[in-house]
């Protein structure tokens, strides 16, 4: 393979306690730590490992988002991506528009492989990878926990509800990374310094000829319904009788 393209989404960090704004207009993101979507980080790690095995020549990290998403791309470059492209926009980009945007980048870069996370931990939509594969008219392998390459094909293990499924796809293809695909590396300080000199190109939606077409209006954001705090029991006998009281034993 010559090129692998990896999508990195800037999201609220995994460890941040999410708070819904009192007026229901969204969640609080001001002053909140932002990171690479963890599944996208796994996607990048996999691309880097493929390259380090000598099976790919270049890894391009791309993101769609505000100017600040450069931070996540710099982290991606520090992890080992060769260059980065930010499609800069302050608009909320829906999955289909993200897929249309990535398709434009694919047309420019002609990668043999695109890897994204199986879902982003902010909207939890889990759509972009499969939508991109549909628009690109290429194979998809979602929820990937293992992948090997031979003869222009990828053999992929997918985590499905009933176990582990293997499929074979011709390249080019889109993969979406699941948790157990790999454990991403830690970024070392010298790599952060080196990453500052790697190319990071910024383009606009207009440059790519993409007009956003929002279709899904978020009317309101609510905190989840809270469960009532229950009773504490002292011992196993107390547990058994509490379960019997509820008719569960």
């Amino acid at each position: 393979m010559k090129k692998i393209m990896v999508g990195l989404k800037r999201v609220v960090d995994y460890n941040v306690r999410i708070r819904v704004k009192p007026d229901g207009s969204g969640v609080i993101t001001d002053g909140v730590k932002m990171s690479i979507n963890p599944f996208d980080e796994i996607a990048l790690e996999e691309a880097l490992r493929i390259k380090e095995r000598g099976e790919a020549e270049e890894v391009i990290a791309v993101s769609i988002g505000p100017a600040d998403a450069q931070q996540q791309l710099r982290t991606g470059l520090a992890m080992g991506a060769d260059r980065a492209i930010l499609v800069q926009t302050d608009e909320l980009v829906e999955s289909l528009d993200a897929a249309r945007t990535l398709l434009k980048l694919i047309e420019k870069e002609s990668p043999e492989l695109v890897i994204v996370g199986k879902q982003a931990i902010d909207d939890d939509n889990g759509q972009t990878g499969a939508m991109l594969a549909a628009l690109w008219d290429r194979p998809q392998a979602t929820c990937v926990s293992e992948v090997t390459f031979a003869d222009g094909k990828a053999t992929v293990t997918r985590e499905v509800d009933s176990g582990l499924e293997t499929i074979e796809v011709d390249l080019p293809a889109v993969l979406t990374a699941d948790l157990r695909l790999n454990e991403p590396r830690y970024v070392k300080l010298p790599d952060i310094m080196k990453a500052k000199r790697k190319p990071l190109e910024t383009v606009s939606m207009e440059d790519l000829g993409v007009a956003l077409e929002p279709q899904l209006k978020i009317v309101k954001t609510d905190p989840p319904a809270q469960r009532q705090k229950g009773v504490m029991v002292e011992d196993v006998d107390g547990l058994i009788s509490a379960l019997k009281d509820k008719g569960l034993l």
Binding site: V12, S95, D122, D123, D124, N125, Q215, L216, V219
Partner: peptide
């Protein structure tokens, strides 16, 4: 576009669905 994980139907094109691991429930109108 797609509405993932419908948890409540509000109207024919309006639904509630979980985001942020269920910590924020959005009402989305397609």
């Amino acid at each position: 576009g797609q509405v993932s994980d419908i948890m409540t139907v509000i109207g024919p094109y309006t639904f509630q669905r979980p985001t942020y691991a269920g910590e924020a429930i959005i009402t989305v109108e397609a």
